[in-house]
Write a protein that binds this DNA or RNA. Sequence first.
DNA 1: TTCATTTTGAAAACCCTTTTCAGCATAGAA
DNA 2: TTCTATGCTGAAAAGGGTTTTCAAAATGAA
Lengths: 136, 136
Amino acid sequence: MKDIQPDWPAGLKKTKQRECVLAVLEHARKPLSAMEIYSEIKRDGTSVWLSTVYRILELLVKRGMAVKIAVMNSETALYELNRFQHKHYAVCMNCHKIIQMDNCPMEKFLPKFQDDDFQVIGHNLEIYGFCKDCAH
Amino acid sequence: MKDIQPDWPAGLKKTKQRECVLAVLEHARKPLSAMEIYSEIKRDGTSVWLSTVYRILELLVKRGMAVKIAVMNSETALYELNRFQHKHYAVCMNCHKIIQMDNCPMEKFLPKFQDDDFQVIGHNLEIYGFCKDCAH
DNA sequence: TTCATTTTGAAAACCCTTTTCAGCATAGAA
DNA sequence: TTCTATGCTGAAAAGGGTTTTCAAAATGAA
Ligand SMILES: [Zn+2]
Ligand SMILES: [Zn+2]
Ligand SMILES: [Zn+2]
Ligand SMILES: [Zn+2]
């Protein structure tokens, strides 16, 4: 699981736990919760504490290396590597699967809203419904 | 604060606490947290418990009489009366003020996304940035 | 009024997340 | 390499919003 990193990010002390968290995020095919990352690392045999995972994730987010996602109606935050793509999600109301959308519906709308006494920094969009496995 | 309700919703037992929660929501000019509703009721001199407020809000949401809003990067849920209007919010990153948007940027986009193996039930959109009081 | 059924009070439990602080590991200097 | 300052982790506890519990109280129907 733990990969050979080509080069370690400058200013970050290299620790076993940080390497593991980064490796898990790198291999992830979907956004993961802190608990999922923690479990993945332990399953791999490395000793780590959940609070440490939270600390590392907070650090990665602060450095812009990871992104924190808050899916509504879910009390757990999800994390993924920052791949510098603007994206949004569709969430299945049945199986809670998260499906990535490839285009942003806000592009055309935002300039209109900009004028209205509000300086827009970003936006957050989520579609909810049923994925094709759960459609009825 | 407690209004004379024209008619009490059928099938709902009328209790002092439920009347108060509904009255607070009716007078609210912005979405409120359970704690804010609780404080408002106590300030009015009525005895109520926070867990009861949560129970009542859950009931109202389940009956479609209220709407629960989860603003990202905020760990508290907000509630408002369901006025059956489709709307979205802009959230100030500085003062956390919530500004209601009057048009929905998704209307034109949704049909395009509908086809993609996902049955769209609804969506959730949030703009974040700085309100005019906090612009820099 | 009486009684079955709900609802509330009061407290405790829950769950995810953050904080604390001492001991340990890391990277840079000597 | 060894030393040292600094930063990181383990381990446990606390935090904060929300939910659960169960006995007592209130409600509405008969
Ligand atoms: Zn599904
Ligand atoms: Zn977008
Ligand atoms: Zn503001
Ligand atoms: Zn909309």
